[in-house]
Write a protein that binds this DNA or RNA. Structure first.
Length: 460
RNA sequence: GGCUCGGUGGCAGAGUGGUUAUGCAGCGGAUUGCAAAUCCGUCAACGCCGGUUCGAUUCCGACCCGAGCCUCCA
């Protein structure tokens, strides 16, 4: 029973072993709080939430930190454009981010450090890098000298020569090497800034993660995650800063999720297919969005479409239908489930193979439908345990099936009344009337299921 | 141009050197007053060309196509 993770650094799957036997440290790059989170932002949150849940089944202590970037050019611009204060903007979008991620059943991280609370640490880190000859001051900026680090570029698999060859951006003339990046930059008088040995300024983008990891998790952490696009330059530069300042390994397992597309196209503002989580939540329940995000492996591109969401909805409906069938079956203590023997668990242990895990849920649901009464409690417990690990299936089945997008169309009381009327019609063998009611409800988005113990209904 | 990753049945999406992925959709059947749900059965795939092999979708090479990164970006 061991977790295997794909490590970007080695470009292969590795058996996961934390630095300390019963304690895991994990850091995931969080949002820059200047606008609403989009569905692409939600992918790493959901993926690493599953990892967080998985790790907690094996390790006594799992410290999961996800930062809030609350100082950044885009924030300054957003505040200026809306005539609001920086604090006002960052507070609003920090809160909305938390709400949106909670709606996706993402557990709150253990720690949520804010960049602006760690300016001292960033200045100290910069001073260390200067003292060790890895950084230099130029025209008010402090820059990291990439040539001072022999294996710079290892994470992203590129050399300084490659980068020179591929340079397509004009190089600022205060840089010694085009790859040098800003640790500290001067702040305009009207912009937020902090006093430093190099004048009033603010930190470069990469610095905060290095400083906050050092402050909260130590010099070497087990897992660092984020989107693929962060491999270079962000994570490469974090490595450079932290390893040159502190030595050691910095991060033992680097994990990166692939992008998602919208209807086959890259999501972008210019294409007009930018989908915020908040907007999607108006049409789909968070659990549906979450399931859709988990329906492909995290390292594969995922095409986010209405079709995908419909499939997610259908899959979840199927699981909840299976659970509804055993609503009154008591669940034994979930603690006595041997996870290591469970297919869904082994699937997740293998680099978070969520599609395979979901296939195992289908197998469990099928068994549950066919099970003898005596076997149902155990199967129900196993299905619920699997759902819990994925962050789904924890609602009351009846509530789930009767909720959904069409929930405003017709009230439950009206549905129940029509069902009663139809029941009476059936007693009188007035099937024409009974079928008319069925059709009427179907038109309102409600499907009826006649069973031995009465009629159940669900939103279609 | 440099670096990296992919191309699986109608769709989504795992996986494997030789045996059913799974789900949705379709088709046939059971069940139902009719349905739904459920069950049983069924159809169908591994970009192209070579190579290695007793055997390749799986390994190797070329090619075609697609995606990402190259200092805004999950």
């Amino acid at each position: 029973m061991s977790i295997v993770l794909y490590n970007t650094l080695s470009a292969r799957k590795e058996v996961f072993e934390p630095l300390q036997p019963d304690r895991v440290t994990m850091y995931v790059c969080g949002p820059t709080v200047y606008n609403l989170a989009h569905i692409g932002n939600a992918r790493p949150v959901v993926v690493f939430d599953v990892l967080f849940r998985l790790l907690q089944t094996q390790y006594r202590e799992v410290i999961y930190a996800r930062n809030i970037t609350d100082v950044d050019d885009k924030i300054i611009a957003a505040a200026r454009d809306s005539g609001r204060s920086i604090e006002d903007v960052t507070a609003e979008f920090t809160n909305k981010y938390r709400e949106d991620m909670a709606a996706l059943n993402a557990l709150p991280p253990t720690l949520e450090p804010h960049a602006t609370h760690h300016i001292d640490g960033m200045i100290a880190l910069t001073e260390t890098l200067l003292a060790k000859g890895h950084a230099y001051v130029s025209e008010g900026h402090v820059l990291f000298a990439v040539e001072s680090m022999p294996d710079y570029g290892r994470l992203s698999g590129r050399s300084l020569d490659d980068m020179l060859a591929g340079a397509r951006v004009e190089v600022a003339d205060y840089k010694r090497h085009p790859g040098d990046f800003v640790l500290w930059k001067p702040a305009a008088a009207e912009d937020p800034g902090w006093d430093s040995p190099w004048g009033r300024g603010r930190p470069g983008w990469h610095l905060e993660c290095s400083a906050m990891i050092r402050a909260h998790l130590g010099e070497t952490i087990d897992i660092h995650g984020g989107g693929r696009d962060l491999i270079f330059p962000h994570h490469e530069n974090e490595i450079a800063q932290s390893r040159c300042a502190h030595g050691g390994d910095y991060v033992r397992y680097w994990m990166h999720n692939a992008y998602l597309d919208i209807d086959g196209e890259k999501m972008s503002k210019s294409l007009g297919n930018f989908r915020t989580v908040r907007e999607l939540l108006a049409h789909y329940r968070g659990e549906v969005l979450r399931f859709a995000l988990l329906s492909a492996h995290y390292r594969s591109p995922l095409n986010f479409s209405t079709d995908l969401l419909a499939q997610a909805e259908a899959n979840l409906g199927g699981f909840y239908t299976a659970l509804r069938g055993v609503q009154d079956v008591p669940v034994p203590e979930s603690d006595d489930i041997d996870l290591s023997a469970e297919g869904f668990y082994c699937a997740l242990e293998d680099d978070l193979n969520t599609p395979l895990a979901i296939a195992e849920l289908h197998a469990l649901a099928k068994q549950l439908h066919k099970a003898a009464e005596a076997d149902k409690p155990r199967l129900k417990a196993r299905l619920l345990a699997a759902g819990k690990l994925l962050g789904i299936l924890q609602q009351e089945p009846e509530a789930w099936l009767q909720g959904g997008a069409a929930a405003d169309d017709i009230a439950p009381e009206a549905i129940e009344a029509l069902i009663a009327e139809r029941q009476a019609a059936k007693q009188d063998r007035d099937f024409a009337r009974a079928d008319a009611i069925r059709q009427q409800l179907l038109d309102a988005g409600v499907e009826l299921e006649d069973g031995r113990e009465g009629t159940l209904w669900r939103r279609a």
